[in-house]
């Protein structure tokens, strides 16, 4: 269990700031929650005490959230940045500023859980040694067998009798049943979310409520793919994401 994250919420509008701070304070993975009313106050706070992450509203008078994020990007130690915006995500991504996540206003508590997970991973991200063979999955590539690191796989899908491992770029046929893969990969962050889907929860991008207690899961690197989460797997998945 990683230490709690200290965060700073920057928004010129009090209700939005209060609400986000309130939601953050309710999360066990979050430690101290500070607030700032504009970029200037945020920078003053940061010079006094460093934090793990800054939640930045994009639209603020004076120095806006994008300017603020550019300044934060040059700091050392550098806090992670999460943009909070009423705009559409891609409108912000176009500015090319590195951010751990984008949150839409109004913020959903479930969505915030995913952000917190990402912040924890961002903090812990030291590039490890190359995955040992035991962490690799054998996939068929023509007549050859390739061993790909388990963490590259976003989801394994059973399509009829054939199982495919999907990475951001490829769809590899796997010589194993989904049950066999599940047994091998459970320790690597994978979880069965549907009869035909085994998902890598280390890459969760979003989880949206669908019909009758089911959900749709999307994974980083494969965001165009909606993965069904069946009702019987939904509770375990939500618990796993919540930590």
């Amino acid at each position: 269990m990683s230490p709690p994250l200290d965060v700073l919420v920057v928004d010129d509008e009090a209700p939005a700031r209060d609400e986000l701070a309130f939601l953050l304070r309710g999360r066990p993975a979050i430690g101290r929650v500070d607030e700032a009313v504009d970029a200037e106050q945020c920078l003053q706070r940061l010079t006094r005490r460093s934090v793990d992450a800054v939640f930045v509203d994009i639209h603020m008078p004076g120095l806006d959230g994008l300017d603020l994020a550019r300044i934060i990007a040059r700091m050392s130690p550098r806090p992670s940045v999460v943009f909070v915006t009423a705009y559409e995500e891609h409108a912000v991504e176009a500015f090319g500023i590195e951010a751990v996540d984008f949150l839409m206003k109004p913020v959903r508590p479930e969505r915030l859980d995913i952000t917190v997970r990402r912040l924890q991973r961002a903090g812990a991200s030291t590039p490890g040694p190359e995955a040992p063979f035991s962490d690799r999955v054998a996939v068929a590539h023509g007549d050859e067998i390739l061993l790909i690191p388990a963490d590259e796989i976003r989801v394994a899908v059973a399509d009829g009798d054939q199982v495919f491992a999907l990475t951001p770029e490829h769809r590899w046929p796997v010589r194993a049943t989904l049950a066999e893969l599940e047994e091998r990969l459970t320790g690597h962050g994978f979880m069965r979310v549907h009869r035909s889907y085994l998902a890598n929860l280390r890459h969760v991008a979003s989880l949206e409520s669908f019909f009758n207690g089911t959900y749709l899961l999307k994974l980083d690197g494969l965001r165009d793919l909606a993965i069904p989460v069946s009702r019987r797997h939904a509770a375990a998945l939500r618990a796993a994401i919540r930590l």
Binding site: E208, S209, F211
Partner: peptide
């Protein structure tokens, strides 16, 4: 279709 059905939901 998934996103369209989320709108419906």
């Amino acid at each position: 279709l998934a996103d369209e059905l989320i709108v419906v939901r």
